[in-house]
Design a protein around this nucleic acid. Structure first.
Lengths: 98, 98
DNA sequence: AAATATACCTAATATTCTTAGGTATCAAAA
DNA sequence: TTTTGATACCTAAGAATATTAGGTATATTT
């Protein structure tokens, strides 16, 4: 979420779920039960700030990264890559011979 | 765990934690609170079977994959790779120009 | 002798996700 | 025109999993 918000500037919750689905060719589904509590937590931690906008009679809540959120994005992305690297080391096939 | 057991043939719990630490250059720590409940669950599901061995006065519980466990290993490895692929698609930097 | 490593384990708590709701507007199909 | 599906927010119960912090005991190293 932080990464998408960093690139897109501002996004609303539903938009984030659609982005995730599109970018992953439908392989990842970010459910609303996972999405909204996380966004609220990010806001409580001061990583994002919100702006409510009315589109017709319907409400949209736009999220944007704070300075703290941009820093968190970088560190979390690096952390995730380290996780992937470590997992690949562990899951790399053990070379039996050669 | 399934992957390590598949390659090593048989392993005991503590050995698995050390393997994970070594393979990942100390970046991943598999704690015992995560390890043992998971091994017990794998056994309950019939993916691994156990054999208790006394080494001096100390007990070791060796785990080996069942046929079902070997199949599960393959599918779980594939599943994890798909997860990584999907995440990389989502986390891939958005090309702004060119 | 004491500290560290080996070797098993559990349990309370915390965290997070899934599932399954609820409310409401808007557009398209039946 | 009604009903379905998409858009758009949300919460809460339950399930799953990890963290933390123990407990027990033997073996080895300092």
């Amino acid at each position: 979420m932080l990464k998408l918000l960093d690139e897109e500037g501002k996004m609303y919750g539903y938009e984030i779920t659609q982005h995730v689905k599109t970018l992953s060719d439908g392989k990842m589904i970010l459910t609303e039960g996972a999405l909204y509590p996380t966004l609220h937590k990010l806001e409580a931690e001061g990583l994002v700030k919100t702006k409510k906008v009315m589109v017709g009679k319907r409400m949209r809540k736009y999220y944007t990264l704070t300075t703290k959120g941009k820093k968190a994005n970088k560190s979390k992305l690096a952390e995730f890559q380290e996780f992937i690297n470590a997992m690949q080391l562990i899951l790399k096939p053990k070379t039996t011979s050669s």
